[in-house]
Design a protein around this nucleic acid. Structure first.
Lengths: 157, 157
DNA sequence: GTGATTGCAAATCTTTTGCACTAAA
DNA sequence: TTTAGTGCAAAAGATTTGCAATCAC
């Protein structure tokens, strides 16, 4: 990788990269997904995957990118999140009307959603089991079962 | 109830009412909910509760009201749906980003959601059981568990 | 009458899209 | 080059809000 390529304007891309996912891994992920590794995608993959399971909205990820000095437009963040989701790098979680969360955990799992704070937390699928699921209506097949455990902070009077 | 009160302009409110929930029941529901029984609320309660379990969006309910000759603005439909939900007459179901469904079934239950058609169908809670639910994070309590079984029509090649 | 409710239109918020420009291969 | 990707600003939806007019009590 050529440092010069990533040194743009007022910020040093390398500094951001140092703390993030190794470039090789990020590149590999994009290649596997069949997505051209552009500067923006590379930066977003690293932000997303550098730490463990994460839940972001387009808005929050865009904010992080800005804070890290990465130049990327909100429209591109939206587009990229959807491309990543289609490519299987992310999963979309629908828990609130009017807001989409994207989840870096693509394994089978479920969620705690705190109605008070808006925080989303994973529940590994192996913790849970559902029984008594009725047959899906004729002519349809199950694509996924989502369980959302809605919680709220104890009402401390 | 005074018929004259419900005879407004170009349509006969009574005609609409004949096929719907008895007025007494609709009135009672609103009274129980502490909501002043206005013409619009009365009409919407009846549309919502006249038949069994229903799933509506503000848009679809507004369309039904229009078709039935009931004068009500979309903004009022939105406001009313939320008032009904707060009052426990309805439940909100979040299944798709960018669209809120309201469910006339307020009993404990879950959903099939068809990704192909957008159709929502109830699964009575007694059909299902979930085991292995982890303790909610400290300081929080569970308010509800939502299970969405996402289905799609068989991919007939 | 008096305060709650409604309608309308404008505002807000999230998300998508069109198109000229830029960058990867 | 050649084509994919990006940024911006405008558009598109869904939902909410402000305020004057209207309605229930």
């Amino acid at each position: 990788m050529n440092a010069a390529v990533y040194f743009t304007g007022a910020y040093c891309y390398i500094c951001v990269m140092n703390k993030a996912l190794p470039t090789s891994t990020a590149l590999q992920r994009l290649r596997e997904a069949g997505l051209r590794p552009t500067r923006q995608r590379l930066a977003l993959v690293r932000l997303l995957l550098e730490s463990g399971d994460r839940h972001v909205t387009a808005e929050t990820l865009h904010g992080e990118a800005m804070a890290a000095g990465i130049k990327v437009s909100l429209a591109t963040v939206y587009n990229t999140l959807h491309q990543f989701t289609e490519a299987g790098l992310l999963r979309e979680a629908v828990v609130e009307p009017g807001r989409s969360y994207f989840d870096t955990n693509t394994a089978d799992h479920h969620h705690f959603f705190c109605e008070t704070t808006g925080e989303l937390r994973d529940i590994p699928a192996h913790h849970l089991s559902v029984s008594g699921l009725p047959e899906p209506p004729a002519g349809t097949e199950i694509s996924r079962v989502d369980i959302i455990v809605r919680i709220r902070t104890d009402s401390a009077a």
